[in-house]
Design a protein around this nucleic acid. Structure first.
Length: 293
DNA sequence: AAGCCAATCAACCGCGCGAAG
DNA sequence: TCTTCGCGCGGTTGATTGGCT
């Protein structure tokens, strides 16, 4: 069974495009457009190519105003910020960078940018191989990791209250070593201290005990000590339960009210181009576990 | 000069979604 | 409402390139 192929695989050319093929495709589309039917297009112009292949070639290389390579620092920042906020939604990221394609950005991220962020870990100081699965320094590593995780989450929360931390669905899956570590921590339930909303006093903070589900590998958060609205929103509760007086924090952060709040939850917004904290956590925390997200 | 290896990037693949019938 | 089909997307593959030994 399975899906019907989109074209006759046996009679379709694969591999790199020749200049002649490029010319045929580009001239046709320049004159007639795509006709809203990529599948039929190659037959029309006598190309032995799959329609999807034609579409990809056009979108990634032949259409006007495509830029290749030479990513600027600003583009790097945008890519990193968006990746933090929304993950590998390359088409959305590409939409923010005129002239860039999702494929280009994806390749750039996977081959260069990610390494640039992860930089030092394991290259300049290769991690010694543990002697067996249990040769992990759980205590030292976990203390350090939790501290840095906390720092990262604080920065994340300040930058975007509905980003990584506040959306459990975006939390990284954990590998087995991390799970072992965090399982052991559950005996002394760790508390993440998040910064208090500006409307509260300096001494206030949001304390969120975290539990780690070793079966699913997912971090469970059980926010209990908190300031009203912010905590409710952070916990993913129904926004309708939040009173207007509880939106102060978001207003101070540039939001205008309930509409913006809902939009922030459903969509995304990058308020800051700063991504240093994720670089740090990637490199130092998840890097310790030989992973990233 | 040759061989090896890692990095890069163009292209392919399969799946999910939405529009159309 | 259901089915079909094309589009768009993200993940992956594989050919090429360049650097190192």
């Amino acid at each position: 069974m399975g899906r019907a192929p989109c074209c006759d695989k046996a009679n379709v050319k694969k591999g790199p495009w020749s200049p002649e093929e490029d010319f045929k495709l580009k001239s046709y589309i320049d004159q007639h457009g795509t006709g809203n039917n990529w599948i039929a297009l190659p037959q029309k112009i006598g190309l032995k190519r799959c329609g999807k292949s034609c579409r990809l070639r056009w979108l990634n290389y032949l259409r006007p105003n495509i830029k290749h390579g030479g990513f600027t620092e600003e583009e790097d920042n945008i890519i990193c910020s968006l990746y933090i906020s929304i993950g590998s939604r390359w088409s959305i990221i590409a939409a923010q960078l005129p002239g860039r394609t999702d494929n280009d950005i994806k390749n750039y991220w996977n081959t260069r940018l990610k390494k640039k962020l992860l930089g030092r870990h394991r290259k300049s100081s290769p991690r010694r191989e543990p002697e067996g699965e249990d040769a992990f320094d759980l205590q030292n590593l976990s203390n350090s990791a939790m501290e840095r995780l906390q720092l990262h989450l604080q920065l994340q929360t300040l930058q975007n209250p509905f980003s990584l931390y506040n959306n459990p669905a975006l939390w990284p899956k954990l590998n087995h070593k991390m799970i072992e570590t965090l399982d052991s921590l559950n005996q002394n339930i760790p508390v993440l201290n998040l910064p208090a909303p500006p409307s509260l006093g300096q001494e206030d903070s949001i304390k969120i005990p975290v539990q780690f589900d070793s079966k699913s590998g997912v971090v469970e958060q059980n926010p209990i000590v908190v300031n009203d609205g912010f905590a409710a929103a952070a916990a993913g509760e129904n926004l309708q339960t939040i009173g207007d007086d509880e939106l102060d924090y978001f207003k101070e952060m540039g939001g205008a009210g309930r509409e913006n709040l809902a939009w922030w939850c459903n969509e995304f917004e990058v308020k800051s181009s700063s991504w240093d904290s994720t670089a740090v956590i990637d490199e130092h925390v998840y890097g310790d576990y030989g992973m990233s997200f």
